[in-house]
Computed example of a mutant assay.
Amino acid sequence: MERSERIDDPPGLATLVPPSPGGVRRDRRGGTVVLFALTAACLGWGALRLTGWEPVFRWSQAVSFTPYVAVAALVPPAWAALTRRWRTTVAAFAAVSMFAVILLPRMLPGAQPPARGPALRVMTLNMWNGHVPTSALMEQIRRYRPDVLTLQEFAGWVPGRLAAEGVAGLLPYAYALPEEDANGVAIYARHPVSEGRRLPGTGPGQAAAVVTLPDGRRVEVVSVHACAPSSGWRTACWEPSIRRLPGAGGPLRVLAGDFNATLDHAVLRELIATGYRDAADATGRGLTMTWPYHEQPFFFPKIAIDHVLADERIAVRDFRAVTLPADDHRLTVTDLTLP
């Protein structure tokens, strides 16, 4: 007797059936929308940064992270090219070009003026309201032997502790205004300090003093601590605290400290345009990050808000940043040559 047998479909046959054309179109359309949104965001960010327009104070915070957005901007053109979306590829490469214009100069050393005068080493540090162990700071002072040290958030107990650590043996001259609540500021120097003054305005303390070198050259040094563009009164205080800083021209001047601004902030670029050069930028180290570092994982995004601005007649030889214990800012050391 013959048996009839039923042949079933092989297992997994359904998975070999190609998706319908409508599904492919929907997937591609969804990818196009996401890609367009990413490209538009990068173009918009680059355009805002290049124009210098800062529409609201939150942008003043966000624009600090432009270097990280520049890295993310590499994704859309690669995605668009791989999926053969050629018009989007062109737009995405336009965004990358914007960020290249913004960031590449910071990575390339600039030409130096023909300065042949004495060397001046400038060290600066925000002490996080005095939390930095003075022993750690003195270790760096002994290591780098600065001619000038500017300090911010110079708390009331810091002068005594520095004196006990022997700061007078290395930096015997000072103009210091110790205060609480992160308002204190100081300028220490190896050479005589005179004409000290507090800069006007509300917010953290900022001070200036004249340092006279052995050959008689005089350099005005400003210990900078601008307000933070965070919230409330500090937002209103932030831009004016930078605009109150003295512009370049006339006597030689060096501004050093916590500007609470990066090179992506228009207000800082406008100050530099008066005749200064940013030391990190001038040495091709403009992407050296300085904040925040205390108890932050390595992958947490950092930004560059601590600067040394030198009169454009001064040659910038070197710039470096050093991480200290119990501080959210990094110490910076800058080597200058006076004209």
Rank of each mutant, 00 (worst) to 15 (best):
A208G: 14
I242A: 06
A189Y: 01
A174Q: 15
R217Q: 05
V224L: 11
P251Q: 10
N183L: 13
P192G: 08
R243I: 04
E165M: 06
Y188L: 14
E180I: 10
L170C: 03
I187T: 08
L268K: 00
Q152W: 05
N183A: 14
L149E: 04
A266Y: 05
W238C: 12
F154K: 01
V185A: 15
G232H: 03
P192A: 11
E220A: 05
V221F: 14
P246I: 07
R243N: 05
D258W: 09
L149C: 06
R143M: 11
A186V: 06
R161P: 00
A261Y: 05
Q206L: 04
F259G: 04
S230R: 11
W233D: 15
Y144V: 12
A236D: 15
G232Y: 08
V158K: 02
P204I: 11
V267C: 14
S241H: 03
L177W: 02
G203A: 09
E153Y: 07
P178A: 12
I187R: 03
S231M: 07
A164S: 14
P146D: 04
L255Y: 05
C237Q: 12
E139Q: 15
E195A: 15
W233N: 13
W157G: 13
P159G: 11
Q152G: 13
T274S: 14
E270G: 01
L170K: 00
P200S: 12
R269Y: 02
R234H: 14
G160K: 07
V222C: 08
G196D: 00
P240Y: 09
E239F: 00
A228D: 13
A209K: 02
A163T: 14
P200L: 08
Q206W: 00
G156Q: 12
P178K: 12
R234V: 00
G257R: 08
L199M: 06
G184R: 02
F259D: 00
G257Y: 11
G250H: 05
V267L: 14
N260V: 08
L213G: 03
P204A: 14
G160E: 13
A163V: 11
W157R: 13
G216T: 00
V222D: 05
G160D: 13
R218Y: 00
S223W: 04
G201T: 06
L271W: 06
G196W: 01
A208P: 02
E270D: 15
Q140P: 06
V224C: 10
E153S: 10
F259L: 10
P192C: 07
L171Q: 06
T235L: 05
G257N: 11
L213E: 01
L252P: 03
L245A: 06
L199H: 01
H191F: 15
A261R: 03
D258F: 09
E153F: 08
I141L: 14
T262W: 00
P251F: 08
P251K: 09
D264H: 11
T202C: 09
V219C: 02
Y276A: 11
G249I: 05
L268R: 01
H191G: 00
V211R: 01
G232F: 11
G196C: 04
G196F: 01
E153C: 10
D264Q: 08
G156F: 04
G249Q: 04
V158D: 02
P204C: 10
A248M: 03
V254R: 00
